[in-house]
Computed example of a mutant assay.
Amino acid sequence: MVVAHAFSLPQGPQRIVCLTEETTEWLYLLEQESRIVGISGYTVRPRRARDEKPRVSAFTSAKIDKILALAPDCVLGFSDMQADIAAALICAGVPVTVFNQRSVAQIFDVLFQVAAMVGQGAQGLALIANMQQQLAALAEAAAALPRRPKIYFEEWDVPHISAIQWVSELIGMAGGDDIFPELAAQSLGRQRIIADGSEIVRRNPDIIIGSWCGKKFRPESVAARAGWGDVTAVKTGQIFEIKSADILQPGPAALTDGVAALHRIVMAWSQVHG
């Protein structure tokens, strides 16, 4: 006699710790925030997550004991820089998924994977399609510009670190040209260091955008750098900040608010200099 066993359908992880902001923001957008039991201390999107969820990690460090006390059935991380955290949790028996997205296409791939993990594949695809439509509209508007500005995007000041790949790609979609496209493909910040600041001056950007992760961008200090007085962006006052939370997180923020900020800067420049 064969006895039939009843199995419930899988519901996906119920107790998720997010070691970076982008997965937290995405789970909130998917209306699955009840699954989150711990977040990164750097989380600012959505703002209410800081009030609702315990903070258990920085970026390259984490409170392992605190995470284990939350009894997570899934920990989500980003980049090889969190390998040590992931290893410690794996050794403690915790399921860990670490993504390593660097391009816009890879960000979309990760968003879909996370949505599928929590049983929200259809909703995730709908949100992704909406973001892709917005990006396409920006790119179409950018294609009509008579002239594209040269843009230097600075991720850090000392040493100078240029734009990571998804930021470089979003600059292009917004209507500008990254002046260090050859560095954008390098995944690590130390690989995107511009050792000689005079090379930035030589490439003479029309626009400078700063996004210093973890500290306030200061346009006046950029303008005052030795030898930068003749840079077009400095002479014309085209030095701007985009908050790191809006552009340097490889998730929804960069694909919405981050690229929108880039596009506004480019369009305003085009009205005067195009």
Rank of each mutant, 00 (worst) to 15 (best):
S8R: 04
R102S: 04
E21A: 04
D178K: 06
V3Y: 15
I16F: 00
R48Y: 13
D157K: 12
K243S: 04
L188P: 00
A136Y: 07
E155K: 04
A261H: 05
A116H: 03
A268H: 05
F112G: 10
L188A: 02
Q191G: 05
A6I: 10
D196V: 12
T20D: 07
S211D: 04
K53E: 14
V17Q: 01
L262E: 11
Q133Y: 03
V44Q: 08
G227F: 08
M173F: 07
G229C: 09
E199D: 06
A69T: 09
K243H: 04
M131E: 07
S198C: 08
V3Q: 12
R47F: 13
I128Y: 05
K63A: 12
P54I: 14
R35L: 15
T20K: 06
I265V: 07
I90Y: 01
T23V: 09
Q271E: 07
A62H: 01
G258W: 00
V259R: 06
A141D: 12
I64L: 02
L188I: 00
L30R: 07
L29C: 06
H263Q: 13
F217H: 13
G197I: 10
G175C: 10
A253G: 02
K150E: 09
G251D: 01
R202Q: 06
V44M: 07
V17M: 03
A253F: 07
Q165N: 11
E154C: 02
W269K: 07
Q32I: 14
D109C: 03
V222I: 14
R55D: 00
T43W: 00
